[in-house]
Nucleic acid binder design. Structure first.
Lengths: 238, 238
DNA sequence: TGATCTCTTTGCGCTAGCACAATGACGCCA
DNA sequence: TGGCGTCATTGTGCTAGCGCAAAGAGATCA
């Protein structure tokens, strides 16, 4: 998953292909197409907390995360930050944001030092035209993201802060493998708040309370889940 | 837009094609493909307040609204209703809901007497494979819906009830033509509440207040916008 | 080993808007 | 034209959670 991408030079063919191989979306491409595509991505490194792009910029690039993590954020008029999506290695970014010569509707910012592979949108759409299976895979992906977004709307409009936070923690550790749920969430209280539509203070308060109750182990920029069942019960509304 | 579809019998070739012609998504198809596709849609009529499908059912059908209006809704554990999307004539439904043999994640219910054209998902994906331009159009559409959904998340998590309601009214009358904004919204207070994540009571209270202030004209199951600028100012947070 | 910076905890008052509920208006059908 | 069902209005508490703010841990770097 997190390939050994630590230097800036040396992007050999095999290395490039190796970065693309684990990406689910490109699994549908025949090997030679994947190899060709790998050549056209342009790798870039970003430090922690850097912006990969800003809301309002022309959306002319498709990005894929090779290593590290990103968040997409929007800032409201009154200075509020909302985290709309977290993006892990292997995931695509900038596909929905703007298509028809549009602008990015969010900003993208790194959570860790991150390597991103960038591709001109035009090239990507060419591939979509040539490989219907890739287009179908993209449709699949967007459909899944749309369902996630609707889930979030539901949460935001009907669940209280405790439920939203519990659901977020569970989701963040369940994605997307059907196998063993993770146990650690590496996010600040601020980011957890921005992700659940609450404030730093409230998120901190709730997590502290859960820590005291033994549901989680709360430390700096990290939450360890101790009692999954307990959180599930809170997520459902006690 | 609302073709003269009032009888249940008599679905001639021209009539079927006429239903498909104004659908933006199918504009990219060559005429013969559109004609062929028209033959495979199965038309169905629904009375007001009827369910076209229920959350949890297998998502094996793609729907297109020929006349009338639909809403997609979800009911929360505590009996709350949330309206996730309104669907007007010419729009597609069931594309994102379930793709990979999934289930509908929402229920779809008519707001008016409605005619829906139904197509097996399998047939639709076949067309996606054969016509890359259709696939691109679908990707476009999903992208736009994703941006709308993110906008709604933003609203839900950062705006107060007045702002959310004002924004909803403005959006409902602006979509999607760049031309003259409409002035009437034909929705009950309940639906407006379910659409903005508030209650019937609160929606009613706010609209009454705006009515008194001359911003809107509020009557049964209908809102007329009188002062667009005033609403815009509220939408931005006064 | 401090100095400093970032992240977190916690207290306190305040209010938006929900829950609950009764009453009133409108429209449809026989 | 009266009766009934649906939709809307409005009143009265009550509380979840925000805003503001100060003080307390961990990290990081020289």
């Amino acid at each position: 998953m997190t390939a050994a991408v630590t230097t800036q030079q040396a992007w050999g063919v095999e290395q490039r292909v190796a970065l693309l191989t684990p990406v689910p979306l490109f699994a549908v491409l025949p090997p030679h197409a994947r190899q060709e595509l790998a050549q056209r991505f342009h790798p870039r490194k970003f430090p922690r907390s850097a912006f990969v792009f800003h809301e309002g910029q022309p959306a002319d690039t498709v990005h894929i995360v090779a290593a590290g993590r990103l968040k997409t954020v929007r800032t409201t008029n009154d200075g509020h930050q909302i985290v709309l999506r977290l993006i892990n290695p292997g995931e695509l970014l900038g596909v929905a944001s703007g298509w028809g010569g549009g602008l990015y509707s969010t900003s993208a910012r790194t959570l860790d030092p991150t390597v991103v592979l960038q591709l001109p949108t035009q090239v990507f759409t060419d591939y979509l035209d040539r490989y219907p299976s890739l287009a179908q895979a993209v449709i699949n992906d967007l459909g899944a993201r749309l369902r996630e977004a609707e889930e979030r709307i539901l949460d935001a409009e009907s669940a209280n802060v405790e439920m939203r936070l519990a659901r977020a923690l569970l989701r963040l550790t369940t994605l997307p493998t059907p196998a063993p749920p993770a146990t650690t969430i590496a996010l600040s209280r601020q980011d957890l708040g921005d992700l659940t539509g609450t404030t730093l203070s409230t998120a901190s308060r709730v997590l502290s309370s859960w820590h005291r109750r033994g549901l989680i182990f709360a430390l700096r920029e990290r939450v360890e889940i101790l009692d999954r069942a307990g959180l599930t019960s809170i997520a459902k509304g006690s």
